[in-house]
Design a protein around this nucleic acid. Sequence first.
DNA 1: TGCCCTTTCTAAAACATTTTAGGTCGAAAA
DNA 2: TTTTCGACCTAAAATGTTTTAGAAAGGGCA
Lengths: 342, 342
Amino acid sequence: MKKVSLSDIARELGVSKTLVSLVLNGRGDEVGINKETQQRVVAMAEKMNYKPNLVARGLRLGASKTIGLVIPNIANPFFARIARVVEDEADKYGFRVMSVSSDEKPEKEISLIQVLLERQIDGLILATCLKGKEEIRSLKNDKIPFVLIDRHFPQVKTNYVVVDNRAGAFQVVDHLLRQGYRKIGLLKISPSHITPIRLRHQGYHDALKAHGIRYDKKLVKEIPFGSIDEVMEEALRELLQRPVNAEALFFLNNDLTVAGLNVIKKFGLRIPQDVAIVSFDDLQLFRLLYPPITAVAQPWREMGREAVRILMKEIEASRYPEEKEQIVLPPEIRIRKSSERF
Amino acid sequence: MKKVSLSDIARELGVSKTLVSLVLNGRGDEVGINKETQQRVVAMAEKMNYKPNLVARGLRLGASKTIGLVIPNIANPFFARIARVVEDEADKYGFRVMSVSSDEKPEKEISLIQVLLERQIDGLILATCLKGKEEIRSLKNDKIPFVLIDRHFPQVKTNYVVVDNRAGAFQVVDHLLRQGYRKIGLLKISPSHITPIRLRHQGYHDALKAHGIRYDKKLVKEIPFGSIDEVMEEALRELLQRPVNAEALFFLNNDLTVAGLNVIKKFGLRIPQDVAIVSFDDLQLFRLLYPPITAVAQPWREMGREAVRILMKEIEASRYPEEKEQIVLPPEIRIRKSSERF
DNA sequence: TGCCCTTTCTAAAACATTTTAGGTCGAAAA
DNA sequence: TTTTCGACCTAAAATGTTTTAGAAAGGGCA
């Protein structure tokens, strides 16, 4: 049972496939096809269960009506939620989404982007782990419309939608400091060149400074993306024991927070009596934990929506526009018991 | 800057595009193209930054090397994890995944499948919310290879990979009963025709029966997928107050559990002293809650992996095979404090 | 009668590939 | 000298669309 094509319908009716194409695309009246003929075509298409081949159309039209979404990991709830928003928003424009996970590996990301381009996607939304300017510039050379989300390169002129990472980190660390915590451990994720991590680190740094507290490298630990669970225990042991004796911990993303909470539970420590906790990125269950976890909530809905809007604008503009949209969204600090002074 | 095609390379080198195509597909030696010519082609392709157009290739070859993944919601961690596994496994076969969320709406799912087919996907993995036989049969008529996951239709001969929902529910309810709980509230999700929900309900029912306890309809509540948060509070109020007075609650999926926990916290009830809790589907954070939540863990990794394996087997088999693979995986019961007798 | 205009439709090109069925040319064999 | 063979390469078709350019037929008008 082969698939039904325009030609099949045309042959069956003894007309040209041009006519069939025109009618099925609703241009029948416009080009003056006899009403009755139009009806016959529609009826026959129906009867033969015709489905247009969008691949062929895409080839002819040079547009696939598909966008690519490159993220570190679809299994991370932050990105899963964004993926959902992107899917819904793109749908409004008649676009499908192909999403791929880079695992924070630049080489993998490059090859994924390559594959997406070969598949003739019309645009890209990227939470990129690329190191920098060069690689992003090569995208610009491809003249493919794209929007960066979550992570951006201030030095390169691109569209982006990000959250104010520095401000979020600053506020939550400032909060800890006001509660009287002094020794605040910082847990970073390891490809640490990515902007949000750098900026959150910066916010931490600035908050300390604003309170006149010395920045201490010994309080900062870096955990590799691929082996969070394995490394976290050792990192926390070092942070929480002598000589460091951290009183509070700031986890820079939700993966770290979850892993950290596991270890803290294993150590049998009480939050916040033994150690206070704050997290960048809020998860639905954080407010149900005991105690609830203070977190910087990110506006994922807006991030996804804006990214799609900008991308569609650029795709629909026939020329590749020079001006780029750059959006920085405010985070929301959700103070909960995990960071209270006991 | 237009995209570079085979013809461009051919023209540049003064050879035919046939030759270029053969060389770039690694068939140069096989068909006896001069080594030196081969090198010139490869070098020129490199120089011109040639990227094959997979859409054109797909059109010619009648295969898109893309599969569709239809799930209720990519933002649900259970499905997000499956999506990740499917992505990784499909990649091993050189396939990309297009995933779409149906929101448990059959009409939406039908239209999504339609669109995926128009895009010439080579196969489908479905966690379907379709009502039944008819609609699935129409897929079979399309002769498109597909595998059902999570949800299946025992009466229809299809590939599927599911978990033993009845057994999982039976065991966890049996556990509650052994702890001495008698009045066990059941929270179902609302398009309740889908098999896992029916079978989990069945398991609940069977466990009660095995303990000689009367099944009481008043203990069963149905929550619509689209408005879980809104409806949960009222449902729990009815279950936990007189005259029902449920002593324990069994949530049939993770969305329900999370929503339920929110309400229980709001009511200020203690777990398990005031109400014991068990969940079908385990989330990473359940073991960190206070108290940790007893849950039926699903083998999502195997589910994704097997689904892809079966699908690839069917795609690669030239004929549409008659025999179907049907896999039922065992769940794992994780007993935690939320279901202890206090 | 010849011309032009409408109405209704179509042939062919184009998109970028892969594949089929050859073609050319020089050298070796007969 | 002709044939054959091998090495190397190519023209054209095919995939399923959309679009461009124009054709056929019939009627009105000078």
